[in-house]
């Protein structure tokens, strides 16, 4: 489904990804773990097509197509979904309206009829049960005034509605208490399917207790330095990342976090 070869990428002139090779088949769950600043989130953003991330070498093929030439919305309608680490607020734009617009963009691409507001509401309500989200959220603006946990639930709700082929979860567990984590993990697990792949980016092993991966990769300093089964995650938990660092760690700046637009 997804094949990454020798991917290099820069952010603001700094090389963050230094040669990533990864193959993800349909039905698989891959976890990418690594310390802060190792490039995990950069990989997620590059796969989704963020403009400010510059690919300097390598290639990414998705279902046989050259992914890197596609615009972000083209990747989305082709079935790639990114659950953001920091979902942005969009004041005044209704959450429900936003999700329906997204779903219809996808349906249009697939030659399906647009879904109307009533049918969509039924669909959304059903999916909301999956992430145990309060129905009042549909009437609020996209992510506006949502707590950290609510934002993450909203991401998984969108994933459930858009039914992507390849879902990338970027630090979905960050900032969640254990109950929220369980709910969200249950929501994600419900979406596991033979024709769907998951790429789970995380700092901690905790999430992987609930979303059990088929493969675990360790990323350090822009490279995948080790790969293995789910046991690798446990080993990391015990040993830490230190043993994997081939050279002194880069300063732990969170280079993948981009500036939020001017919005007082």
């Amino acid at each position: 489904m997804l094949e990454i070869r020798d991917l290099h990428a820069k952010v603001e002139g700094r090389e963050i990804l230094r040669g990533i090779d990864l193959r993800v088949n349909a039905g698989e769950v891959h976890a990418i773990m690594g310390p802060n600043g190792s490039g995990k989130s950069t990989l997620a953003q590059v796969l989704a097509g963020r403009d400010s991330y510059q690919v300097t070498a390598g290639e990414v093929r998705y279902e046989g197509r050259d992914l890197l030439t596609l615009a972000p919305e083209e990747r989305a309608v082709a079935g790639i979904f990114l659950s953001f680490q920091y979902p942005v607020e969009i004041p005044g734009v209704g959450n429900l309206y936003f999700m329906r617009t997204a779903l219809n963009a996808l349906r249009l691409q697939r030659g399906l009829e647009a879904i109307d507001a009533m049918d969509f509401l039924t669909l959304a309500k059903e999916k909301m049960k999956l992430v145990e989200m309060d129905p009042s959220f549909v009437n609020r603006s996209v992510n506006e005034g949502f707590s950290g946990g609510e934002k993450k639930r909203n991401e998984i709700l969108q994933m459930a509605i858009l039914e992507p082929k390849l879902a990338i979860l970027d630090e979905t567990d960050s900032g969640l208490d254990i109950d929220a984590l369980r709910t969200i993990a249950a929501g994600v697990n419900a979406l596991r399917a033979p024709d769907r792949a998951l790429l789970v980016v995380t700092h901690y092993q905790r999430l992987l207790e609930y979303i059990v991966p088929d493969h675990v990769h360790v990323m350090v300093n822009g490279r995948l330095v080790a790969s293995g089964g789910k046991d690798l995650a446990l080993e990391l938990e015990k040993r830490g990342y230190a043993g994997f660092e081939p050279q002194p760690a880069t300063p732990a700046t969170n280079a993948t976090r981009t500036a939020v637009g001017a919005r007082p």
Partner: peptide
């Protein structure tokens, strides 16, 4: 914001519609 626009596009909404949506939301 760049991030607002990217968020909409990542959900499959074309840039033009996304701008229109954000302005209307405003």
């Amino acid at each position: 914001g760049e991030d607002q626009l990217f968020y909409c596009r990542q959900r499959g909404i074309p840039a033009e519609d996304a701008v229109s949506m954000i302005v209307n939301g405003f």
